[in-house]
Design a protein around this nucleic acid. Structure first.
Lengths: 139, 139
DNA sequence: CCCGTACTACGATGCTTATCGTACGAGGGC
DNA sequence: GCCCTCGTACGATAAGCATCGTAGTACGGG
C-alpha cells in the first residue's frame, strides 16, 4: 500500500510541484474556538509544551522538548495544538518550528493565555512546596 | 467512583448512625487541578452552565438550566464540574443547588475564570455578528 | 548516491467520555 | 397513605483520545 499514497502535502493543492514550502493547515484566527483551546490546554503534555514555548519565547523544534512520550505521541499533541489554533508550525529544512500564536489568542481571548500560564506556574510552585491539603498557606 | 453504592439514607430517622445524610463529595481547594478545570470548561454544555452560574451569581437548581440534553447527561456534567472543583453542590429538599466556587478558583488561579468567561462572551458576540472567517475585525 | 536525522501516517489498543433510556430513591404536597 | 417532581445510579453505546510500534517521506550532508 505504498506507492499510491499521497505525498506529504496536507492542505495545499498539489497542482504544482510545491517545491519548498510543505505547508501545514492552520485555522484562521476567527476559526479558533474557545472550547478547542481549553481542551488543547487541558492535557498535561500539551500544557507543558505551551508553557515552554511561552517561557522561551522562541520558535522551537519538536525535538527541543523532552516529553515523556514517544515521537508519535509528540506529533499527535503538536497537531492538536496546531488545529486548535494555539501554535503555529512551519517547516524549515527537516525540522519543524513551533511558535505560540500569542497575538491571535490575545486578540480573541484577552488575558486567557496569560492567566493559564500564571495558573500553571502557581500550581507547580504549590506542589513543589508540598501540597498539604489542610495546611492552606495560600494567600 | 467516590462513594460507590451508598444508599443515601437520611441521617436523622435511621436507627443506625447514618454517616452522610445527603452530602456530596467535593475536592478540597488544594486538590483542584488546573488541567481538570480546563477540561471541565472545554465542554460546551459545561461552559454554558458555568457562564450561567456566573451571570446569575446565584445558586441555581439543575433544572434551572435548559440544556439540550437529557437529565442523565445533565447530572453527568454537573458531576464533572463538581469533581473538577468548579462548582459546589448542596441538596435542599428535593432540589440541588449549584454555585460557582469562585473564591477558591480565584485564589488558586487568579484571573483564569474571569478571562474564560470574558472569552466566552466575546466569542458569542463574534459569532452573533456573523462569523465570517478571514473577514476579521480587530478590537 | 547513500545515509542519518526529523517528523509523519497508519493501525492497534485500551481508556475515557458524552449521550441515552430505564429504573429507582428522597422529599414535599395532597 | 399516594404520587409527583427532582435528581441519581446503572447499563449500554458510540465516539474520542492518548499512547505505542512500525514503516514511510522529506531534507541535508557526506
Amino acid at each position: 500500500m505504498r506507492a499510491s499514497r499521497t505525498p506529504v502535502r496536507r492542505g495545499a493543492a498539489m497542482t504544482t510541484a510545491a517545491p519548498s514550502p510543505r505547508v501545514l493547515d492552520h485555522p484562521s484566527r476567527d476559526d479558533i474556538r474557545l472550547e478547542g483551546v481549553l481542551h488543547a490546554l487541558s492535557d498535561p503534555q500539551r500544557l507543558l509544551i505551551v508553557r515552554e514555548l511561552a517561557r522561551r519565547a522562541a520558535e522551537l523544534t519538536c525535538s527541543d522538548f523532552e516529553l515523556p512520550v514517544t515521537k508519535s505521541t509528540s506529533t499527535h499533541h503538536f497537531r492538536v495544538l496546531r488545529e486548535a489554533g494555539v501554535i503555529q508550525q512551519i517547516y524549515r529544512g527537516t525540522a519543524k518550528l513551533n511558535a505560540l500564536r500569542r497575538p491571535d489568542l490575545d486578540t480573541l481571548f484577552p488575558g486567557l493565555l496569560d492567566s493559564v500560564l500564571l495558573a500553571a506556574t502557581r500550581q507547580e510552585e504549590r506542589s513543589a512546596r508540598g501540597d498539604s491539603p489542610s495546611g492552606g498557606r495560600v494567600g
